[in-house]
Amino acid sequence: MLDSLLALGGLVLLRDSVEWEGRSLLKALVKKSALCGEQVHILGCEVSEEEFREGFDSDINNRLVYHDFFRDPLNWSKTEEAFPGGPLGALRAMCKRTDPVPVTIALDSLSWLLLRLPCTTLCQVLHAVSHQDSCPGDSSSVGKVSVLGLLHEELHGPGPVGALSSLAQTEVTLGGTMGQASAHILCRRPRQRPTDQTQWFSILPDFSLDLQEGPSVESQPYSDPHIPPVDPTTHLTFNLHLSKKEREARDSLILPFQFSSEKQQALLRPRPGQATSHIFYEPDAYDDLDQEDPDDDLDI
């Protein structure tokens, strides 16, 4: 599952945390798509180009196009000409392409962009970039686009994260226990139920992905074939199923609170002597019958 994340295309969110950083997984996925012969663009805002390219061999490095927004993103240093339109301009420029080669765009990181740009603008651009292959008209000439966005979850409120995750085709949330990294993958395919899955992995020094079995403690209850499954319905103190006879008997029974026409008739028929009833009242010995002051026994 983890190794076929980019097969679907669309936006893939990598949600990481301080304890479980996601850049190595991003680099592993970038390496994978570079090896598949895809065109790979990297929008680098958080680390330098050298640091990102570190660990890749020259063959892969040659296939990566690095758009450097790390050195001077706000044009403070004025070292070189800033990219027109900033990072979003670069993203939009990636949209305008006509070649049929599949493209992977890695955003390192989406959090950097989200902190500095309006959420709606960013979502619109992301939508335009990740859905350009499904545009009517030129769909035949443009290849599949995958956008990999690294998102540091702690930095954003639920609103922007929710907006991005509703845009995303696939969400990968990183976590782990006992030094072992895991990825929880939520995948939404069009017209299908979303699937979710947890996978354990590690990243090798050359940034290839190594899928692993989970820690033995967790996987034991699911993997042991020797324990026969227990049927919880075998030793019940009540009947779960009825025979035909029992069902008929149940259906013919009239429950005491059921309102029938006979019952209605019986209630509406006037009984003899009902109209001439009397109330007999016998006063108590200590009753106060003084009409002048009815409250004189209250001792106020």
Partner: peptide
């Protein structure tokens, strides 16, 4: 970040 997952985030 440049080291394998087993040795990182200690």
């Amino acid at each position: 970040p440049s080291q394998p997952a087993v040795h990182r985030d200690q």
